[in-house]
Nucleic acid binder design. Structure first.
Lengths: 196, 196
DNA sequence: ACCTGAACACCGTTCAAGT
DNA sequence: ACCTGAACACCGTTCAAGT
């Protein structure tokens, strides 16, 4: 209904930002925080809330997008200062750390978002980050050929199942060890696909 | 309040089974089927429903437990007719297939169940199956030492994120290829832990 | 001991009325 | 163009009354 490129009226802009700000805080604390409570905390009426976010999924996706951009940015910086395989591994470590501190938000995503929309968000900055890391490693010969972004995202899918309470550092480390080994070239059982 | 070992009165028993039966059907179709609708479809009042299942999580866990037992059983049979690594792989393939046909139920689990309860269900028959497969493979030398059940369950965690619509067979296959390679002994980058 | 269904609280969503 | 808050539908949960 509204032109996405037209700038918002200043009060609307402020409201929108305030909602996102409050939602980040509330959803991080608990993934099932009610929209009503978020609207109230943000100091807007329900109608206003729904003008900006037509449903829970829209809000969660927006908050998530904001957050995930930060992690994605780190990838390039890591590649500049480290060999590709170390950069990949460290980036995955950071992703794990991020997943743990934002467990509530991840929970909100799982509960509110369809498979399709989950994919489409990943198709944003996360994809760029992963494919950059992937390309650098493939070129350096530190991972097997033919892996795509979704292979990686699925392989680390277990991160979102780790309990943030408890020994998550060790758990995540073990998972990433296994996964990284699966990524490397010439893993046994699959003779290294020597292409052209 | 009730003694878990005392047998239920026959009508109560029948109600309980009917609820589970209906819930399996409804939740498989859609993970967010309402408890009210399930109770109604099962032909019981709300009070009866809550007598058997104090909340959504309790119901979902119970339905899930029933289903997962079937997959777990297959593990032993596979080990009898195949070499350990093929048995493991084929079992994972079946798990993937199962995850896809029961996508709604998996969705219901994700939405309704806490991390803790998710773990505790896995600690049931699934754990037995995985650890049997793991032990056989470790002994045969087809996987690295020191992997535990949770390593495996986390490594295949991505299965639950695959979209059942679309090319899930190929996706799951690729994921399991990566993961199995990560499991094998002597994967590069981790010099084979030669123990004792 | 178990079942029923009305009743309650709460949440997501809509909409007429405002500025 | 945007905001407000009352109103509605629906869901989870409880409980007094039944057998």
């Amino acid at each position: 209904v509204r032109d996405r490129n037209e700038p918002l009226r200043s009060d609307a802009q402020r409201n929108r930002e305030r909602i996102i700000e409050v939602a980040l805080e509330a959803l991080t604390r608990s993934g099932d925080a009610s929209l009503t409570s978020i609207a109230k905390q943000a100091g807007v009426g329900q109608g206003t809330f729904y003008r900006h976010f037509p449903n829970r999924e829209a809000l969660v996706l927006e908050v998530y997008r904001h957050e995930v951009e930060q992690v994605a940015e780190a990838a390039c910086r890591l590649l500049e200062t480290r060999p590709p395989d170390q950069a990949l591994r460290e980036w995955l470590d950071r992703l794990a750390q991020y997943a743990m501190t934002k467990a509530g938000l991840a929970d909100a995503m799982r509960r509110a978002c369809s498979h399709d929309s989950l994919m489409s968000v990943s198709r944003g900055p996360l994809t760029t980050a992963v494919s950059t890391l992937l390309a650098a490693n493939e070129q350096a010969g530190t991972i097997r050929h033919g892996l795509d972004v979704e292979d990686v995202l699925l392989a680390i899918g277990g991160l979102w199942q780790i309990d943030p309470k408890g020994d998550w550092r060790q758990r995540a480390g073990r998972l990433l060890d296994v996964v990284m080994d699966g990524f490397r070239t010439g893993a046994p059982g699959r003779p290294a696909d020597v292409v052209d």
